[in-house]
């Protein structure tokens, strides 16, 4: 008897509330200024907590709260699939201004390099701004006898070289495939679950080459375990540890550069007033000297671009990558 009463109670209450409550909030008002009214805004970071990408976002959140009026920024890590899972979650979230995506190079690279992505991410975002750029460094073991890209080329042509990469088709994979292909050779790519594991593989002798962000390999260059043989950029790195590392351009391979970018976006369909609100916030936050310093400490270069310029930059990147990946045709799968 008691149980029947409790069940009826539950059913009645829930029906009442269901009838009253209804579902979503009224459609966002697309005119006039908008703020999150103090609510929580999730920044989806498609990288694992603790990596340099994640920490740059956290640097903004922890030091830049004052630039985001009426907002509580919360970092949400959604790692996996080389960013695919986080990006998927982001592009499919509601365009109500409460979800921001930390959209970086994988947003462009993944859909262009592999055919198995669930979405073409860069077509499903409204860019807010670009925050930083970063470059990549090619590492080999110190005892490998390889000192520069020329040596690497010879090794690739003479024996099977193993490349340890962080994800299939991503920024740690395609540069060396491209390099090998253009020199008439091939590398065997083995996928690891992150930069740390890839570096460990090279250290342990399971792989010969790895391409990582400068900060991730820094300690191993310093300790003498790894040798950095090239910076994949037009300029050398300012970090003293990498001062003597020539760029790929200097070594005669101007087509082997890869500049990664980091930026923020909103899901497609977000009303313009919401986009403008965040454009203003991020523009102020990214000019903050503390945030810029933190970003540099993490190995990235602050390089702000506002929404329209970022949009153009993205289109340019897409075209660039499409060209490279069509040349690679299937080597990455």
């Amino acid at each position: 008897m008691k149980r029947i009463i409790s069940v009826m109670l539950v059913l009645c209450l829930s029906l009442m509330l269901f009838a009253q409550g209804g579902s979503e909030a009224a459609a966002a008002d697309s005119s006039g200024a908008w703020t999150p009214k103090g609510g929580n805004v999730n920044i989806i970071v498609p990288f694992g907590a603790g990596g340099s990408s994640d920490l740059t976002v956290r640097a903004i959140v922890n030091n830049g709260a004052k630039y985001f009026p009426d907002t509580t920024l919360v970092v949400e890590n959604v790692p996996g699939g080389g960013c695919a899972i986080g990006l998927t979650k982001f592009v499919t979230s509601k365009p109500d201004g409460f979800t921001i995506g930390n959209t970086s190079t994988p947003m462009v690279v993944l859909p262009t390099s592999t055919t198995t992505q669930p979405y073409v991410y860069y077509e499903m975002v409204e860019p807010i701004c670009r925050s930083a750029v970063s470059t990549f460094v090619v590492y080999v073991r110190s005892d490998s006898g390889i000192y520069n890209l020329e040596d690497l080329k010879n090794e690739i042509l003479s024996r099977e070289m193993i490349l340890a990469c962080n994800s299939k088709g991503g920024n740690s994979h395609w540069e060396m495939e491209y390099f090998a292909m253009k020199n008439g050779g091939d590398v065997t790519a083995v996928v690891y679950d992150g930069g740390a594991s890839a570096i460990a593989a090279v250290l342990g002798g399971h792989a010969d080459i790895t391409v990582q962000a400068p900060n991730d390999g820094r300690e191993y260059v310093r300790s003498g375990d790894l040798r950095a043989i090239a910076v994949l950029n037009t300029e050398r790195l300012t970090d003293s540890v990498y001062a003597d590392v020539p760029t790929s351009v200097e070594q005669g391979y101007p087509w082997l550069t890869n500049v990664g970018f980091q930026g923020f976006s909103l899901p497609k369909g977000t009303p313009q007033n919401i986009i403008d609100f965040y454009r203003e916030c991020f523009r102020n936050a990214l000019a903050d000297p503390v945030i810029m310093e933190e970003t540099e400490k993490l190995g990235m270069i602050p390089a702000y671009l506002d929404a329209d310029e970022f949009s153009a930059f993205i289109d340019e990147s897409v075209a660039n990558y499409k060209e490279i990946f069509s040349a690679l045709e299937g080597r990455l799968d």
């Binding site: 694992g48 907590a49 603790g50 990596g51 994640d54 920490l55 956290r58 790692p79 992150g194 740390a196 594991s197 570096i199 460990a200 250290l203 900060n215 820094r218 300690e219 191993y220 310093r222 300790s223 375990d225 993490l298």
Partner: peptide
């Protein structure tokens, strides 16, 4: 592996590593 080489092999160790980095110390072989 984290303290002696700076390589976090699990996600929980990766966060520990970020704790180091945030306080200005990068774990590595040195």
């Amino acid at each position: 592996p984290l303290l002696s080489l700076g390589i976090p092999f699990s996600s929980s160790m990766a966060i520990m590593m970020s704790a180091f980095i945030v306080h200005g110390i990068t774990p590595g072989p040195l």
